[in-house]
Design a protein around this nucleic acid. Structure first.
Lengths: 154, 154
DNA sequence: GCTGTTGTCTTGACTCAGTCCAGAAAGCGG
DNA sequence: CCGCTTTCTGGACTGAGTCAAGACAACAGC
């Protein structure tokens, strides 16, 4: 299920209660911030939370993110070389494209159905439960900027 | 090409010269350590290097790893939640399985040929140059330990 | 071989994300 | 509304990784 574009505060409250988590102001604010700013790093989420709730501490945001992640209400993504980022799309099997230049992250629906490369050529006895795919490249902006620079400078 | 099991010091020297890198004791030691201890984190590599070369500094190892990575002689892997790890298999398109319990990493040959999931369902205008696949699960040891524990304790 | 240039290594201070801890405060079931 | 339980706050702390300046070593040319 993709992120619903318009979620009310009461929806976040229901999500928390549904996960048997206490409904607190910091958690509502964090949930809202992750939904409003997908793929944001922790500092951005802290900043977004503090706009509406300046009294919420950094630790509360860290703790809320950890609990929401453990409860499956948000998802932690951490591409190589990047700090922790969070997104609100959970439960589906989508992957990510990361721009090597500006580090922007975009969602990609799984190309190969539900279990993309879950069948490794040889599982070495591993019990695999998830296959995570990260596409690396250049986002449209950085790609055209690079082509443009190359074309005019060299 | 997989890692050759028996590499001489002179082979490492040739690899460095082939990449037009200066041949220094720290670099040779780091190259050797990465080949001997694949998937090791930086601290382990520092430890392995210091056994034979106690005078080599931490910074030299960090710098060597960065340069060797930039030159393509070693590869940096960094699964979510893990510190930087290095391996010596480069140039092929293999992937990794990571144990959720003990964090051990194992190589997996690409299951789908050379460009596994490079064709995302919708590339959003991205110019993709690499698809990285990480399989998450339990290694044989942790899997059997978990089954055993479950069987005897509960 | 020897020497100068260039690039590398050492030492030590520093940054920054994330964690730990103990006391204070707030949510929730009765 | 009460009291138990869980969460939040503020501050100190950890640990991976970085930065910078000077000492040093590798390579190219003589």
């Amino acid at each position: 299920m993709a992120t619903n574009p318009h979620l009310e505060p009461s929806d976040f409250e229901l999500m928390l209660r549904g996960a048997t988590l206490r409904v607190t102001r910091p958690r509502l604010a964090v949930l809202s911030a992750v939904h409003t700013h997908p793929h944001s790093d922790t500092d951005s989420i802290i900043g977004a939370v503090k706009i509406d709730h300046p009294q919420v501490s950094r630790q509360a945001v860290y703790d809320s993110l950890h609990r929401l992640t453990a409860a499956g209400l948000v998802r932690l993504i951490q591409p190589s070389g990047s700090v922790a980022r969070y997104e609100s799309r959970v439960g589906d099997n989508h992957h990510h494209m990361v721009c090597r230049s500006c580090a922007v992250i975009t969602d990609v629906d799984c190309a190969v159905g539900e279990a993309p490369c879950l069948t490794a050529s040889d599982d070495n006895g591993f019990s695999i439960d998830e296959a995570e795919v990260t596409y690396w490249g250049l986002c449209p902006d950085c790609y055209s900027r690079k082509k443009f620079a190359h074309h005019t400078i060299s």
